[in-house]
């Protein structure tokens, strides 16, 4: 198969970027999308040119590092699929495919197709954890969790933190990500001691990073490679309201960070 990849090239965070066309031939239908970029990079390096910078980790659809906006869709046209699990049979022969990095002021471009997702890490650092003594693994069924609850927690916990929800949202809102991270712990017994603190701190952290507000466009769940349901956002709203009204005091009024260019 033959393709033209129109790829966003940006030498550094501060440089201005542009789309550059790379024709490529001899691609198999069962080659993965990242393998096509690898092929282009090999050609570029053979010509002593700078290869395309992109995140290329696990290639098993579980690490969340591949993060490409392909023809305006996060992780490409196939639903519930990460870019690394996307195969060229999803495209038509001879197609021009536009490849861009995630776009959100909170996730600035570092180089070419790589964005800085530290904002998401800072949200996790604010309270996306449980404080427990580590050590030996506890006995199975020591703490009972109903099947239904475990399934819903697992559904939320399947978030790989890739940021597709943010990239797909017209408002660049991180609500689906934050909701998944809050809900996975709110549903389980281990998450209860820090439940109020967690939801308030994580929402405040999200606001500080300058993500947009959720206005219920539902693009996030469409784009999510792990099919995290929209209902986790409502669950987050519920958790937040409950904690805000009945939980601990707020740490501080949320101050939104306006990112300067």
């Amino acid at each position: 198969m033959k393709f033209i990849l129109s790829v966003w090239r940006q030498p550094s965070a501060t440089a201005t970027g542009r789309l550059v066309d790379y024709p490529i031939d001899g691609i198999g239908a069962d080659d993965s999308f990242l393998e096509v970029i690898d092929a282009i990079n090999e050609n570029l390096m053979a010509q002593q040119q700078e290869p395309i910078a992109y995140e290329m980790d696990c290639r098993e659809g579980i690490c969340g590092s591949c993060s490409l906006m392909i023809n305006g869709s996060a992780h490409g046209p196939q639903r519930a699929t990460t870019t690394c699990q996307l195969y060229m049979r999803e495209f038509s022969d001879g197609e021009t495919i536009t490849v861009e990095p995630w776009r959100a002021d909170a996730l600035p471009v570092i180089k070419d197709l790589i964005v800085d997702r530290s904002a998401m890490d800072r949200i996790m650092q604010s309270a996306g954890y449980i404080s427990v003594h580590t050590g030996e693994a506890p006995d199975a069924n020591e703490i009972l969790v109903s099947k239904h609850r475990a399934d819903r927690a697992f559904e939320a916990a399947s978030c790989i933190g890739c940021g597709a929800c943010i990239a797909a949202c017209p408002n660049a809102s991180a609500m689906l990500f934050v909701a998944a991270k809050v809900v996975q712990l709110a549903l389980l017994p281990q998450g209860q001691p820090e439940r109020c603190h967690r939801v308030i701190s994580m929402v405040e952290a999200m606001d500080r990073e300058g993500f947009g507000n959720c206005s219920n466009h539902y693009e996030c769940a469409e784009a999510c490679p792990k099919s995290i349901p929209l209902s986790v956002i409502a669950h987050l709203n519920r958790e937040f309201l409950q904690a805000g009204l009945f939980g601990r005091e707020f740490s501080a009024a949320a101050h939104r960070v306006v990112h300067e260019e």
Binding site: G72, R103, D105, P170, N171, S173, G212, S215, R256
Partner: peptide, 18 residues
């Protein structure tokens, strides 16, 4: 206010945009 914040959350639009 919310709409303005949402706009400033993505100031560089996608090229293959909507």
């Amino acid at each position: 206010k919310v709409s303005l914040e949402n706009r400033s959350a993505r100031r560089i639009a996608y090229q293959a945009g909507s």
